[in-house]
């Protein structure tokens, strides 16, 4: 958990900064139920996380008003973002984001940008792992890359969730590293992708840990590498021989690709410092709940927390990076 400490320290500093402002600006709290927008369908990763947060808030009585989770998944989440964008000055609305915060406006041309929303906090980062069937002939990401290269274009099939989103962006990055095209097959959800790999209808996936862990443990799939700068922190054994921590990073196995997906919270444009401070404090309490920590561990999330200027800076960098990645891949709308 080394990196986390740094972040927590930074976040605390940021929050203290906010705290002093809000002490003068008068504290705020919701006066009616808060709508928690999920720009994705029911049952997916973002939805599960939103409902977990809702449950933690209700169970531990962290807020006087209730939370109502609202799914607005249309147009790869554009509907949800537009809803928040067009409700300026309504602080009773927050939204959980995934990478579609960056990819949807670029890929579909729907006019919005993260700057249209007010950033609250980064809750966690979701990891991506390169998975192959356990009886696949390659043992490392390097061997996989070599096989892709010698196989030639479109020989290998990569499954993923959605189109022109995080999974396909990683796929394009892998293609660049391998120097050969993969056939990217988009599916509806992460669980489906993992099962298609178990059934060998595809050759590899970049599933999030939680989507594939069950098949790893049952011996059907094996992880080759994780698309993060450092290894995953969880050292508890998941199979007889391996823990999350034993999976090498892609970079150390010769596949220099890094990608993490934002799980962050935003609120409506024009929210005051006091309103943002309330939600930051609320989320801080959520993160302390044992249920949250269990969820982070089960899903092998990167539990990074970020607020204020750090978060804005992070968003600016990531937005630019997504723009570059998507331009190179030819995913920009028009």
């Amino acid at each position: 958990m080394r990196p986390t400490w740094h972040c927590l320290a930074a976040a605390t500093a940021a929050a203290i900064g906010f705290g002093t402002v809000s002490a003068f600006a008068q504290a705020w709290e919701p006066t009616r139920p808060v709508q928690f927008i999920v720009p994705a369908g029911t049952g997916g990763g973002a939805d599960t996380m939103a409902r977990a947060i809702q449950g933690i808030i209700a169970k531990n009585n962290l807020m006087k008003q209730s939370v109502q989770v609202v799914n607005k998944s249309g147009g790869a989440g554009a509907e949800g973002f537009l809803d928040v964008k067009t409700s300026p000055g309504d602080p009773h609305k927050i939204i959980i984001t995934l990478s579609n915060l960056f990819t949807t406006p670029l890929g579909t041309g729907v006019p919005f940008n993260w700057k249209d929303l007010t950033p609250v906090a980064m809750l966690a980062l979701d990891e991506f792992v390169l998975w192959v069937p356990s009886d696949a002939p390659f043992k490392t990401a390097g061997e996989y890359l070599a096989a892709v290269k010698t196989g030639g274009n479109n020989k290998f099939k990569m499954g993923g969730t959605g189109s022109k989103q995080e999974d396909q962006i990683i796929t394009v990055a892998v293609e660049k590293a391998a120097g050969a095209k993969l056939t990217y097959v988009p599916f509806g959800g992460g669980g489906e992708v993992a099962t298609q790999l178990v059934g060998k209808h595809i050759d590899s996936t970049v599933n999030n840990p939680i989507e594939a862990v069950a098949h790893w443990r049952s011996g059907a799939l094996k992880p080759l590498c994780v698309f993060d700068g450092a290894r995953l922190p969880v050292t508890e054994k998941m199979t007889a021989t391996m823990s999350w921590n034993d999976i090498p990073t892609c970079k150390e196995s010769g596949l220099d690709v890094q990608y993490l997906m934002l799980r962050g919270i935003f609120t409506t444009p024009g929210a005051t410092a006091a309103q943002v401070a309330f939600y930051v404090e609320l989320l801080r309490k959520v993160r302390e709940a044992p249920e949250w920590q269990q969820l982070m561990k089960d899903g092998a999330f990167n539990p990074k927390f970020m607020t204020g200027a750090d978060f804005t800076a992070w968003l600016t960098t990531e937005d630019a990076r997504h723009r570059d990645l998507m331009r190179e891949a030819g995913f920009l709308a028009n």
Partner: peptide
Amino acid sequence: FERWFLVSLPKGPVELWLGL
């Protein structure tokens, strides 16, 4: 809807004023 299932339905100025 609003109490049991926590589903928010469209509201107008009166409900907002009542704080529902």
